[in-house]
Simulated assay, not measured.
Amino acid sequence: MADYSFRPITMDDLPMFKRWLDQPHIGGWWGDSGTEARLVQDDMDKDVVDMRIVSTDGTPFAYIQDYNAHAFEAPQYVGQPADARAIDTFLGDPAFLGQGHASGYMAARIAELRQSYPCVLTDPDPANTRAVAAYTRAGFRPLDIVPCEDGDPVQVMIAQ
Results as ranks from 00 to 15, higher is better:
residue 18 K to E: 12
residue 18 K to I: 04
residue 18 K to Y: 05
residue 19 R to N: 09
residue 19 R to W: 07
residue 19 R to K: 10
residue 19 R to G: 04
residue 19 R to S: 12
residue 19 R to M: 09
residue 20 W to G: 06
residue 20 W to L: 10
residue 20 W to I: 05
residue 21 L to Q: 00
residue 21 L to P: 04
residue 21 L to F: 01
residue 22 D to W: 04
residue 22 D to C: 09
residue 22 D to K: 02
residue 22 D to F: 08
residue 22 D to Q: 00
residue 24 P to W: 05
residue 24 P to I: 01
residue 25 H to A: 10
residue 25 H to N: 03
residue 25 H to C: 04
residue 27 G to H: 08
residue 27 G to V: 04
residue 27 G to F: 07
residue 28 G to V: 07
residue 28 G to L: 01
residue 29 W to M: 06
residue 29 W to H: 12
residue 30 W to P: 06
residue 30 W to D: 04
residue 31 G to H: 03
residue 31 G to L: 02
residue 32 D to V: 00
residue 33 S to M: 00
residue 33 S to T: 07
residue 33 S to P: 02
residue 33 S to Q: 05
residue 34 G to Y: 02
residue 34 G to R: 03
residue 34 G to N: 12
residue 34 G to Q: 11
residue 35 T to W: 09
residue 35 T to E: 05
residue 35 T to R: 12
residue 35 T to P: 07
residue 35 T to I: 11
residue 35 T to L: 11
residue 36 E to F: 08
residue 36 E to T: 09
residue 36 E to M: 15
residue 36 E to I: 04
residue 38 R to G: 13
residue 38 R to K: 14
residue 39 L to M: 14
residue 39 L to V: 14
residue 39 L to W: 13
residue 40 V to R: 05
residue 40 V to K: 07
residue 40 V to I: 15
residue 41 Q to I: 00
residue 41 Q to F: 12
residue 42 D to V: 03
residue 42 D to S: 14
residue 43 D to T: 08
residue 43 D to N: 15
residue 45 D to V: 13
residue 45 D to T: 15
residue 45 D to M: 06
residue 46 K to F: 14
residue 46 K to H: 15
residue 46 K to Y: 13
residue 46 K to W: 13
residue 46 K to Q: 15
residue 47 D to S: 15
residue 49 V to W: 07
residue 49 V to Q: 14
residue 49 V to K: 14
residue 51 M to E: 09
residue 51 M to Q: 15
residue 52 R to A: 06
residue 53 I to N: 10
residue 53 I to R: 11
residue 54 V to Y: 02
residue 54 V to S: 08
residue 54 V to P: 00
residue 55 S to Y: 01
residue 55 S to I: 06
residue 55 S to H: 11
residue 56 T to A: 10
residue 56 T to N: 07
residue 56 T to R: 12
residue 57 D to Q: 13
residue 57 D to P: 00
residue 58 G to P: 02
residue 58 G to M: 03
residue 59 T to F: 03
residue 59 T to H: 14
residue 59 T to S: 08
residue 59 T to A: 13
residue 60 P to I: 00
residue 60 P to Y: 02
residue 60 P to N: 05
residue 61 F to I: 06
residue 61 F to H: 09
residue 61 F to A: 01
residue 62 A to Y: 10
residue 62 A to F: 08
residue 62 A to S: 01
residue 62 A to V: 03
residue 62 A to Q: 03
residue 63 Y to V: 11
residue 63 Y to I: 01
residue 63 Y to K: 09
residue 63 Y to T: 09
residue 63 Y to M: 02
residue 64 I to R: 07
residue 64 I to Q: 00
residue 64 I to A: 12
residue 65 Q to S: 08
residue 66 D to N: 12
residue 66 D to L: 11
residue 67 Y to C: 07
residue 67 Y to G: 10
residue 68 N to M: 07
residue 69 A to L: 10
residue 69 A to Q: 03
residue 69 A to G: 04
residue 70 H to E: 01
residue 71 A to K: 00
residue 71 A to Q: 08
residue 71 A to W: 10
residue 72 F to C: 05
residue 72 F to S: 02
residue 72 F to L: 09
residue 73 E to A: 15
residue 73 E to L: 07
residue 73 E to H: 13
residue 73 E to M: 01
residue 73 E to S: 14
residue 74 A to K: 11
residue 74 A to F: 09
residue 74 A to T: 04
residue 74 A to S: 12
residue 74 A to L: 12
residue 74 A to G: 02
residue 75 P to K: 11
residue 75 P to Q: 07
residue 75 P to L: 08
